[in-house]
Amino acid sequence: SLQPGALIVGSIRQLCLVRKISAGGAVLHADLPMEEGQRLELELETGEQLDGVIAWKRGLEFGLRFEERIDILPILARNLASQPGERRRMPRVEIAAPALIETGAGTELVTVRDIAQGGSKVETPHPLAVDERVVLTPEGLRPIEGVVRWVEGRIAGVSFQAELPWQELIPWLRARRDAGPAPFLSEASGGESGSAARTGEDPVDPGLHLNLPARVREGTRRWSIDVSTLTTRNVEFECFAALRLGTLLWIVLPGLEGWPARIVEIDGYRFTCEFTQPLHPAVLERVLALA
């Protein structure tokens, strides 16, 4: 059930299958003698023509890097529109979105790793149990009842009791894309001031010593904290809550609605958390400007 596409190299046109498509590139399956670094054009069945370079190759699978980042949602929407109305189904979409999950043991903050109409893959601070009934509430979406189908460590597959209509999913995905601060959007806009943190590696940034009022959410609990250090990758704060190592928190900073971070170090009442996705340097600058 992979979507077909066409690869165009010079005058050669060959059918391929699209395994994955993202803003920056695609994973394709094709029987074509191609080399890394080779340029070609991918034509999707919805008509988009995308120029790219082969980034890697393994057997008949290869990764294509697009010359220009693309917006996935219009392609997804056209794909849906091309399907007959009564059988229209959304493909699975990879995303990193904070969500609350209610289980028999309580409520926890988790990260939605992908979502489809029938279910979702979530990353949880503690392993879930197979056949466990849950209610998943991705940020900005309504609560969805589901059952845990499989568990691999902290990743679990949840199938929804009732299908989520694509009419709800598409606006949610659009809102997530537009809300930012998704790093790829800021990056694509370019023209940032050239700071050392721009590479995302933070090689020399020791963090800023702050006394920044912020909030934390963990499950349904929320409280105020004083952030002492903030970098694109880490946040450090003092708090008197009993929190376990590895817990996923939602850090709410001035001008930033919330960003998931996992506790990586506890020293008395001092907690160090690592953001599950680094903050974009421009976002860090904005937070600090508002502080």
Binding site: L2, S22, A23, V27, W56, G63, L64, R92, E94, I95
Partner: peptide
């Protein structure tokens, strides 16, 4: 099924 990804990266090997 074909997977769509909102992230900007080239899917890794």
């Amino acid at each position: 099924d074909t997977v769509y990804s909102l992230s900007g990266d080239v899917p890794p090997l």
